[in-house]
Amino acid sequence: MPTVDLSKSSLRELNQALHDIPPGSNETSWEVVNPKGSHAVAVGVDKPVAVDVRGSVGYYCGGMNDGGAITVHGSAGPGVGENMMSGSIVVKGDASQYAGATARGGLLVIEGNASSRCGISMKGVDIVVHGSIGHMSAFMAQSGNLVVLGDAGDALGDSIYEAKLYVRGKVKSLGADCVKKKMHPKHIERLQKLLDAAGVKGVKPEEFTRYGSARTLYNFNIDNADAY
């Protein structure tokens, strides 16, 4: 298993090595040690390889990930998994602001808490947070699922489009146009699959409340014309 020590190799060397893996290579399991909060660790991985990062990372870890299985054995700074396309990212600790921002696919699992703006403008990613999330999460979220086992902060789902939010704990407040919705069997089924994929045990989908768009902001309301 190739091991890259970031106290000896540069970040560019690590990311280039991950990009240079030839198709069909047997080196499918990588380890990164001594990240010490480095930014942009394992950004742009585009092969189905596993990357285990032993320690905490800084900004944008696993950004644009397309098929990699990245595990952070520590906490992640702002923007973990930003614009992920496919694959998975698991953060064993906490995640800072805007985890999974704009991500289009794949699975992002935060085993601790996520901070503010989790899943902002998400476009198809599935995010599962074992703990709680901060304010303004799922702002303008377009599609995908955000599952939160703990609580959500202020203004959850402000100006949300078609992303689905499932929160097990309390929601401090809902943002504009975000409303509580009914759980149908298809939601229960989907949520169970997400909980299984994220390694969540002993929690039932029925314990969650679903939130989504009331769709009142989709079209311009002519009665508001005077406001402009």
Binding site: K36, G37, S56, G58, S75, G93, D94, S96, G134, H135
Partner: peptide, 22 residues
């Protein structure tokens, strides 16, 4: 401002590390 600044402090592996609430 970032974890990088704390990464070499003694005993950081077992410290309570958190993001201060707004």
């Amino acid at each position: 401002s970032e974890y990088r600044a704390l990464a070499n402090l003694p005993g950081i592996e077992n410290a309570k590390v958190w993001e201060p609430e707004p």
